[in-house]
């Protein structure tokens, strides 16, 4: 009891440890796997990310040149970023924003003809 009293009284006189989020945002750590981004122009629609994604939330249509990701199913493992042959996928350090509706990331790009076989 007395030990704890020492502790709580010390807390009373010390500054609180609370980070006043969202009024004060602490900087992110390097390498945090936050929101997934795609640079659709670099994408070759190889479908590697689609195949490797453990959550299977990425759908790539190499004919239509679309890249869609069910943002709400993504588990932020970063596998797609690791396997992307063109490094067009990246993860920013901010966590994905909350939403009042389910979101899908859908991108329309230009399908690259020559890489088509590789994807298969």
């Amino acid at each position: 009891m007395f030990n704890m009293t020492k502790n709580v009284v010390a807390n009373l006189f010390a500054k609180s440890s609370t980070r006043l989020y969202p009024f004060a945002v602490r900087g992110h750590f390097e390498g945090f796997r936050g929101t997934l981004h795609i640079n659709i122009d670099e994408c070759i629609f190889c479908r590697t990310c689609q195949i490797k994604c453990p959550s299977q939330c990425i759908a790539v249509d190499n004919k239509a040149g679309t890249w869609t990701c069910e943002a709400m199913s993504c588990v932020y493992c970063g596998v797609c970023v690791d396997v992307c042959p063109t490094s067009c996928l990246s993860m920013s350090k901010e966590h994905r924003q909350v939403a009042t509706e389910k979101q899908t990331m859908a991108y329309q790009g230009v399908p690259k003809k020559k890489k088509k076989e590789a994807a298969e």
Binding site: V8, L12, S16, S17
Partner: peptide, 11 residues
Amino acid sequence: RITAWLQSRYG
């Protein structure tokens, strides 16, 4: 509020 301070919270 004081309870929060004692627990090192903002309260």
